[in-house]
């Protein structure tokens, strides 16, 4: 079954077309990396898929639910870890997790249990009582992802999850993301090409609002005639820009 399917998904802002008739299919349990230079349309695509903005035309279905006409159902089955760390500053790690669990409909007892599991899964026991604002950038990002996972989403959007993190923190988060593979459908946007190559099952490259290349990292390298993924990305993007 397809987890995500878009049908000529389009978003226009006045004169500018941010996403143009996008037809994208992501399988259930797949980790799909969406790449592109700034302004390629990745963020707008994620915004439409996560019901943050309405498409100008076209539609998308998440587990068979339309983002246009069934946004409440879509919101219940997906979760987002936004680009910047998205935590409630004055709430503790545990309170942040319990708050999100309750927003997604879990009762008090379930929320407590789920928060405890997330704290254990993400090795946050030491910081569980600490206010989110006192955590380092890496731990805040870790909490942010845990908050996205606590609702047991069928589809998870990870928007630049490792942006601004140091190498060690980034590698740690890679391990976290690797553990999630297969358990849910994940859409990952990133500017770190090695991240996309290492983590994703398939990669889509967007340019000027259009999906210009798609395949596994190996297929894209073959398509571009190079062994280097970064070089392949540059060649495929430049080709699309011509």
């Amino acid at each position: 079954m397809d987890a995500i399917k878009t049908f000529d998904l389009t978003k226009r802002y006045k004169e500018k077309t941010a996403v143009n008739k996008l037809n994208l299919t992501v399988g259930k349990g797949e980790l799909y990396a969406l790449l592109g230079v700034n302004g390629a349309g990745k963020s707008t695509t994620i915004k439409m898929l996560s019901c943050l903005t309405q498409p100008t035309s076209g539609d998308a279905e998440l587990m068979g639910n339309s983002v246009v006409s069934q946004s409440a159902k879509v919101k219940a089955i997906m979760n987002v870890s936004p680009q910047e760390t998205a935590v409630a500053a004055k709430l503790s790690v545990r309170e942040n997790l319990e708050f999100i669990a309750r927003v997604y409909g879990f009762n008090k007892k379930e929320a407590k249990q789920k928060a405890q599991k997330m704290i254990e899964d993400f090795s946050m026991e030491e910081y569980a009582k600490n206010k989110a604002s006192t955590l380092s950038g890496g731990w805040q990002r870790r909490l942010s992802i845990a908050m996205a996972l606590i609702s047991d989403p069928e589809i998870l959007f990870l928007d630049e999850p490792t942006l601004g993190l140091d190498v060690l923190a980034r590698r740690e988060l890679w391990h976290v993301i690797e553990k999630l593979k297969g358990k849910m459908t994940i859409i990952l946007t990133t500017h770190y090409l090695e991240e996309a190559e290492s983590l994703s099952d398939r990669v889509g490259i967007m340019s000027r609002g259009v999906l210009c290349a798609e395949g596994t990292a190996r297929e894209l390298k073959e398509q571009a005639g190079t062994d280097d993924f970064e070089e392949a990305f540059i060649r495929l993007t430049e080709e699309a820009l011509k």
């Binding site: 943050l52 919101k75 979760n79 987002v80 936004p82 910047e84 998205a86 908050m147």
Partner: peptide, 13 residues
């Protein structure tokens, strides 16, 4: 002004 509200906007609130 923070991404926290984006998280909430994508939630069932």
């Amino acid at each position: 002004t923070t991404s926290f509200v984006l998280r909430l906007f994508t939630s069932p609130l």
